[in-house]
Each structure stands twice: as C-alpha cells, then as structure tokens.
Design a protein around this nucleic acid. Structure first.
Length: 433
RNA sequence: GGAGGCGUGGCCGAGUGGCUUAAGGCAGCGGCUUGCUAAGCCGUCGUAGGGGAAACUCUACCACAGGUUCAAAUCCUGUCGCCUCCGCCA
C-alpha cells in the first residue's frame, strides 16, 4: 500500500506512475481533501479529550455527590460525546482513505519500461543454447505419460482438472529438485531455511497484497465447527515468509534477512479457464522454492540483482536454456515496483515460459504488514519500513517440465542433469518402466 | 473433547475505579568516577498519530474488539493466544 502522506505530497508524480500501469482509480485526487479532513478531525477530537481529562481530574477532587460535582459531570459528559463524534469521523475518513489505497498497486520504478502487456516486456539476456534435436521433440505431457511418471488421468480422478499424480522417477525427480534447490541456496547463497504453515489468516494475505483485490485467485477454507475465522491456502511461500516479521522492529544490523522456503502453492486459477490445460504448466497445486529478502531501502536494488542471480544459478546448474525479461509497467504484479521474469525454453511448446518471477516491492508490502527496522548504530532513530523482495528459485513443477523437454532423447528417455544425480541415487537416465 | 488458570513496557514484576504522565528491578544506551576490583553513581531508556521553525507539547495504546462511567490496566461482554490436568491422537 502507498503512504497517504507521500501520495498527497507527490500527487502528480504518483498519479503519473500509476497511469503507466493504467491503474489510477476513480476519484483518486479526492485523497487530498480526505487527508485534510482527517487532520481537522484529529485536532478537534484531541482538544476535547484533553479538556475531558482535565475535567475528570477536577471532578475527582470535588465532594462526592455534591451539586457542583453533578454539574461538572454533566459538562464532562458533553465533552466526551463530542470527542467520540470526532473519533468516529476520523475512523470513517481513515477507512475511506484505506478503501481508496488498498486497491491501488505500487508505482513502477523509474527504469521499468512502459507497456500494456507481456508483449512489451524487454529481453535483457539469454543463457545457454537452445538444445538441438534431430527428431521432433515431444512435450512433457507425452513424455511423462510414455515414461509412466506423470499420471494426469488419476490426478483428475482424485481431485479434478489441474491436479497431477507423479509416479516413481517422476516423484523422485520432484523431491530431488526441491532438495537440490534448497541446498544450493543454503550452502552457496547464504540463505536461511524456514518451514512455514501452508494455511494463513486473511491478514497475512493482506500484508503481501493478495487481498483484498485478488481473493478469487486464492483457495479459502471457510468457517467450520472447528474454526470461526477463515484460513486460506497459501498461493506462494511469499505470503507466510514475508509476513514472518510483521509488527516487529528488526535491528538494522540484522539486515538483509535472506530466507528460503520450500512450500506447496495452491491457486484457484480464476479467469484462466482454457489456458494451459494440458500438462503440468498450470496446476491448482505445485511446489516452489521461494527466496525472500528483507532489505534496508538503500540496499534493495542490489539485493534484487543478487536474488535474481541466485534464481538464475539454479537454471545454470541444471543446464537449462533460459532468458531474462524485464517486465513492463502493465505486466507487473500488484505490489511490485520492478520485476524480472526468468523464462525457460520449452522445446515441446517451442516457446519460453515463465519459471521464476523476481520482484522488488519497495516498502509497499512492508507498510501493509508493518515490517520495520531500526537503522544500525542509532538507538534514537525512528523505525523505518524495510523493503521486501521475493522470487521463485524455482517453480519446481515447471523445472521438471523443462528437464523433461530439454533433456529428452529420441527414444523418449530423459537424461538426468548431472547436478541432480546425487539426489536421484546416481540415476543417469529415466527410461520407460 | 472435558475442567481449571493466565495474558501489564525488550525481560521480570507491582498495580481491584480518580494520588499511575504504569512503581521497582534487570538488560540496553550516554556520561561520571575508578584503587577498591564479576563495582558504584547520575542520566536516559516504547510505539503510533497530531501541533510546533525548534525547545517542547498534546492524544491514544496494559492480548484484541466492544461496553458501563465524568473517569477503566482495574468493572462487564465477546474474541484470540498461552499454561496445567484428564481424554483422544500422527
């Protein structure tokens, strides 16, 4: 969420930034008068409260039940009523401001290119070579079924469309990828591993910006006899991990906090009917390794580059050809200031597909989740909001897809990337069972 | 699932309607002192929102949300969390 004081102070600038992503809400400029009204309500309310406090102290010193005390009580009661009136007014205005801002996305960073859709994203670089085949490459769906490691029919029998069962070497490959990625980030990139709940409260989803705007995309466990409040299945580890230090004040010296988490992710995929219905690309449940940074504001840009590099390293170790895209203003997620997508080459689709998204959120999520730090070496300094960053490193299911498709052989078997063999009991090739 | 208890500042802990702008201690921070030695002394020591050029000042916050009252950490209601015992359970 944007800071309403900042919005008022830099109204034209913020409006222009939001305009770049086509997200200036109706009546946006009304915020200026709302903030002014809020201030008036505070000043008036506080003056009544002060008078009331003084009056109450005086009443205590008057003889109990005396005529003058009764009279003073009447006057104090009136003050209290007035104070409550201004308080209510203040709350109402603040709710209006929040209502206005809760649906407003972040302002894009200056170096984010203008654009309306993914077609306007800018390719920054490519790594590796497209694998060349002297046969027609198959897609992972066919390969997986042929090998008996992907079972789409039984997934849908159990749970419906967009669920898949993995068998044998497929299941083991999934697990190997999880462990390989975690170990890489732990041992070589300095991340701390964290294991979190997979169901979270509404407040956590608000903190990272999925709510209130994107509730249809999230699976919700409604109230029941067991619980009166709602829980939501996490759509990404970003939600529990970023919110870990919500309402805390961290020591500046402890920044950056770099966390890596494995979690399954659950997405309703509302509005994506008919898209990527074949194969593993778009599932209701998938595994992901997520990197999250909490950084001092001045360090977040550098942190974003390092986080992205860590994600790229996974693809490089696995020998998977990919490219890096800088997303344009219109294609970024709700809370992001700047986003790099890693797109892996999928021979079966003859296309690059997103396998990781690495974003700098600035203080947008931190304000919602109340994530703060005290600048190092200055005990008098006011707490400041951290910057939050996150990125997938990587989406496990799509990595498995990329391995099947890039490492496929003419006979339909799959060569296991060398980096994964220690995690696969030395297995060098997946063949038909 | 049953029964009971408890939630006060970074920590410990006092506080059952006005003398609490939350006592006292510990830790932290700043300084003084250092021959009296795992020390002493003085000061400082929360968060947020207002006002003010500033010094400073006001308002709110004792798990959270409501309520009673001129006045609530204190009384009432609801919620959440934690603890103990019993039962059940991977």
């Amino acid at each position: 969420m944007l800071d309403f004081r900042d919005v008022v102070e830099r109204l034209d600038e913020v409006r222009a930034g939001l305009g770049r992503r086509g997200a200036v809400p109706e009546g946006f400029d009304r915020i200026v008068s709302l903030v002014a009204e809020r201030r008036t309500a505070i000043i008036e309310g506080e003056s009544r409260k002060r008078a009331l406090n003084e009056a109450s102290a005086a009443i205590g010193k008057l003889p109990k039940g005396s005529a003058e005390q009764l009279e003073a009580r009447e006057k104090a009661r009136a003050l209290g009523d007035e104070a409550r009136g201004f308080d209510a007014r203040q709350k109402q205005i603040e709710a209006e401001i929040e209502g206005l801002l809760a649906h407003v996305p972040n302002v894009p960073a200056a170096d984010v290119p203008d654009g309306a859709s993914e077609h306007d994203n800018r390719e920054l670089r490519r790594w590796g070579q497209r694998p060349a085949f002297d046969f027609a490459p198959r897609d992972h769906h066919d390969l997986g079924e042929h090998l008996g490691i992907l079972d789409f029919e039984r997934g849908s029998k159990l749970s419906g469309a967009r669920f898949t069962v993995l068998w044998g070497a497929g299941a083991r490959l999934e697990r190997a990828l999880i462990n390989f990625m975690l170990d890489l980030h732990l041992n070589e990139h300095g991340y701390k591993e964290v294991y979190t709940p997979f169901m979270v409260k509404r407040a956590a989803l608000f903190g990272t910006g999925q709510l209130p705007k994107f509730e249809p995309d999230v699976f919700r466990i409604g109230a029941s006899e067991e619980r009166e409040d709602d829980l939501f299945m996490i759509p990404t580890a970003e939600v529990p991990v970023t919110n870990l230090h919500g309402d805390e004040i961290l020591e500046g010296a402890s920044l950056p906090r770099k966390y890596v988490a494995y979690t399954p992710c659950f997405r309703a995929e509302a509005g994506s009917h008919g898209r990527d219905t074949r194969g593993l690309i778009r599932q209701h449940q998938f595994d992901k390794i997520e990197l999250v940074h909490l950084e001092a504001p001045e360090a977040s840009e550098g942190g974003h580059e390092r986080l992205t590099a860590a994600a790229e390293q996974v693809l490089q170790r696995l020998g998977l050809h990919y490219r890096v895209m800088l997303l344009c203003s219109g294609d970024m997620g709700f809370g992001a200031k700047k986003t790099y997508d890693l797109e892996v080459w999928l021979p079966g689709q003859n296309a690059y597909r997103e396998i990781s998204s690495c974003s700098n959120y600035g203080d947008f999520q931190a304000r919602r989740a109340n994530l703060r730090y005290r600048p190092a070496g200055d005990v008098k300094a006011k707490p400041r909001l951290v910057h939050t960053l996150n990125g997938s490193a990587l989406a496990v299911g799509r990595t498995l897809v990329a391995i099947l498709e890039q490492y496929q052989q003419a006979d339909g078997s799959i060569v296991v990337p060398e980096a994964l063999r220690p995690y696969m009991g030395g297995l060098e090739k997946i063949t038909r069972a």
